[in-house]
């Protein structure tokens, strides 16, 4: 049953950046886009077991810190080798000063 979980405060993430958010045994990446919106994906690269939180956000792309593979974090689409498999994305909402994600 999906549920909304508070992930962070809106000012915890600079614009054009991301943070890691762990919940239970799962790890997520929460993004603050340059246009002020928030997005969420699974927290690890689909290529290898690497946390994306140390990566670089450029516009709407997240680049993995290990091999420079890129995803569009709005859709999860793999955009640059060596990543081939899309990231999972999760719905987000802002309530007051808090960012929530919908987790399964």
């Amino acid at each position: 049953m999906p549920q909304w979980i508070r992930a962070c405060a809106t000012d915890d993430i600079d614009e054009e950046d991301l943070i890691r958010f762990d919940h239970g045994s799962a790890t997520y990446a929460i993004y603050h886009s340059p246009d002020g919106k928030f997005f969420a994906t699974s927290g690890k690269c689909t290529h290898e077991d690497v946390h994306l939180c140390d990566g670089l956000v450029m516009g709407h792309l997240i680049e993995c810190p290990k091999h420079n593979g890129q995803f569009d974090y709005r859709t999860g689409e793999a955009k640059r080798a060596p990543v081939c498999v899309n990231l999972k994305t999760f719905a987000t909402k802002v309530d007051g000063d808090d960012v929530y994600i919908e987790v399964p």
């Binding site: 290990k66 091999h67 080798a81 060596p82």
Partner: peptide
């Protein structure tokens, strides 16, 4: 070699 170099970094 794009892939071999990815492995070199892993």
């Amino acid at each position: 070699w794009r892939w071999s170099h990815a492995r070199h970094h892993t």
